[in-house]
Design a binder for these strands. Structure first.
Length: 211
DNA sequence: CACCCGATTATCT
DNA sequence: GATAATCGGGTGT
């Protein structure tokens, strides 16, 4: 099964992704999550954005949290695909992953690194005050703060949840997708497992980008 | 724009 | 005790 990469009109879709979407190689899912819409519904309010940057991590990758086996922190990566893995880092930030892998690896997930806000921008600006523009959500710690995602959402099922879910959003042509090395790692720095939409201002700022 | 650095804490060794 | 899939503010070019 493949997504449609032919010239398709850019039409937003609010159809939720199904379980099988996440049951593929982690790097395929990372690539195909570009253009999808991440939605957080809370207390009658919706905040959402189009995913514009992702990174893939699976358990035979030394940079993956699951590389050294299951722990109290990383156990969601070993659980069912389509669920959330959220971790707290640098004493300040929450980072959001979607559990995704084929049936041949023990654990894996896709880090959502940046979104372009589409709904609830007023609430997003409140959550990120005093920041505006692309600074609202052009980084993994920024987008969770923007949408109000915390460790409380850890292990939530994107496929069945009415609070946190992902929809088809808009289709992205493969020619618009850039592959590069991942950001901020101390090991496995050269693996081409970061994906982002070319020329999208909401993609995080980086120094060196290998394509 | 490029580089440098401190904050702050859950988790792992 | 050390580390970390980050961020934002600071300084210098």
């Amino acid at each position: 099964m493949r997504m449609n990469h032919t010239k398709t009109p850019v039409v937003a879709s609010n159809v939720e992704l199904n379980r099988s979407f996440y049951e593929r190689d982690t790097h395929i899912v990372a690539r195909e999550l570009l253009g999808k819409e991440l939605v957080h519904y809370k207390a009658g309010n919706i905040r959402a954005g189009i995913i514009v940057e992702t990174e893939a991590y699976d358990s035979h990758d030394p940079a993956c949290h699951a590389y050294r086996g299951k722990t109290k922190r990383n156990y969601p990566l070993f659980g069912p695909v389509g669920h959330a893995y959220i971790y707290f880092i640098y004493g300040n930030h929450y980072c959001l992953n979607v559990v995704a892998r084929n049936n041949h690896v023990k654990a894996g997930g896709v880090l959502i690194r940046a979104i372009e806000p589409t709904q609830g921008v007023t609430f997003i600006e409140q959550a990120r005050h005093p920041v505006h523009g692309y600074h609202l959500s052009n980084g993994p710690g920024k987008l969770t703060q923007a949408l109000g995602i915390t460790k409380l959402h850890n292990t939530i099922d994107f496929v069945t949840s009415d609070e946190l879910y992902i929809t088809e959003g808009q289709s992205i042509e493969s020619s618009e997708i850039i592959t590069s090395a991942r950001i901020g790692l101390s090991i496995a720095q050269d693996a081409p497992l970061r994906f982002f939409i070319n020329n999208n201002p909401w993609v995080s700022k980086t120094k060196h980008v290998k394509s």
